[in-house]
Design a protein around this nucleic acid. Sequence first.
DNA 1: AACTACTCCTGGAGGC
DNA 2: TGCCTCCAGGAGTAGT
Length: 289
Amino acid sequence: MPELPEVETLRRDLQKTLPGRTITRAEVRLPKLFIGHNGLSIDDLAGRRVQELRRRAKYLIVDLDADHTMVIHLRLAGQVVHRDSTGNTLAEGGHPVPAYGAPLPHKSTHVLFHLDDGGTVYLTDIRQFGRVWLMPSDDLDPFLEAANLGPEPLSDALTLPFLRDRLARRGRMPLKPLLLDQSFVGGVGNIYADEIIFAAKLGPDTRAAEIGARAARRLHDAIKSVLTLAVTEGVAEILNGKAAEWRDFPRVHGRAGQPCPRCGVTIVKFKFGGRGTYTCPKCQPAARA
DNA sequence: AACTACTCCTGGAGGC
DNA sequence: TGCCTCCAGGAGTAGT
């Protein structure tokens, strides 16, 4: 479910509530979700104190003491909620099912972290695709290396020349699957791919080689601006990807049948590369302009 | 090497 | 209401 902005928003919220807390006990109710490196088990989380939360692409990284590191990937439907000892929510993010505020644990709550102040962090995932890894901290870099992630789109690593070079190397690949390829840039998913392509006035089927200098600049700007808006405005956290009439986001994704916010032509939905894809048929064809 | 199809799952929405 | 079909924001793997 969550893409870069959702994971980053969750990270920022948890960074305010978790560091300094010690995990007294962790439970895994669905064993396949937990992967321990070097023989580590879920029980090895007991006694570990949270130091810092970081993010790489869609991976949430939890630095623990004693040189342990936990990594969480929410995939399509993962949700994380931190509640205090009285049940008040301190931080939450990810997939909107079960609804925020619903009683926890839910039947799809597969991992629980009990904290030293009586609070609890719940990992709920109705589709069971999410994963939690526990590893010695030295294993983190090789782990991320193996994931073959492209640059962080909001970092200085993603410059216009870098983007143009990458586009040139993937000439025949259509733009949408390219953006979804985590080795191209890290963290973009289906919603933000549609939003970025719309903002850049390109088509999902535009091939990388057809993206000229001006279009590449629009694409670069769109990647930065769309993701920045989602993170800084908290758009992701509020909407969880569901189009809302009352808010101008997402601008095309999930809005089939509604007027394009730029030109008024009806937004269409179709399958592209196996993924639901939303575009404005009028103002998104200009690959070379 | 580059790209496609298939796979892991369950819940919610919409049609009848 | 109930039953059915389809769809879902990810990514690893096997196959071409």
